[in-house]
Amino acid sequence: MSTLTLREAPPERLDLTGLDPARLAGLSEAEAARLAVGTSRRGLTLGDCFAISLDGSDCLRILGATDRLDRVGAGLAAGRIVVEGDVGQRLGAGMRGGTLTVSGSAGPFAGTAATGGTIRIAGDAAGSAGGAVHGAAAGLDGATLVIGGSAGDRLGDRMRAGLIVAKRAGVHAGARMIAGTIVADEIGDYPGYGMRRGTLVAARHGALLPTFVETGRQDLVVLRLLAKSLQALAPEAAALLRAPLRRYSGDLATLGKGELFAPVG
């Protein structure tokens, strides 16, 4: 297992785009130390900030991470990255495969535009986790994002495909969703604002938009499939999907093919 150990809190934000096991496997430690990670005119390199130990394996550990590390795992296509600590914004942006695990919390836009693979955040995620960055066509786009703690506002904003599981989320979860699935224990007010398609499932939710209408209780086969697919990944979310659920259809202010499921009673 290759390891990058942060020596001390960096003096500026660092951009770790492309620092994945496959790329590092082709480099010596001296070559890796010369990779640029700084975001200012200071010209910081990987070796300036991290103690580097490479063994060519498909697993990379980043130790002592802080929220100044941006774009960790961005573009990851295969292999595994394990982060001990927190990370900054755009964790796993554009990721295509592999697994990315963070023991702490993540900054905004975690998983944005990620088309494959699995991202697990043990702690909290800031706003727009799985959401589109400003001006982008889509947020999460096929990957799986699991947030063990709370997600901020606009969870899955403009997500296009994939799955998000979170403990809690703030307001406007699933806003502008193009498609995909979000399952959370609790979500804030106005979920699914402007959603075109997609599925929101929440054990508890805040105020609903007037453009969501209740369609009653149906034992839909798709919920069984979702529950089965979630069983290994998030058993509590799977249990929620197996409970009797009431369905709301929306956002009827737009295409209206989205839906929100909440427990009956």
């Binding site: 096929g142 495909a161 498609a179 398609r197 599925t199 839909l220 798709v222 499939l225 979702l226 093919k257």
Partner: peptide
């Protein structure tokens, strides 16, 4: 026009 697609566990379904 009311049907929706859903991708679950890598398979695409129409509802």
């Amino acid at each position: 026009g009311f049907a929706t697609a859903k991708r679950v566990a890598g398979r695409r379904y129409w509802r």
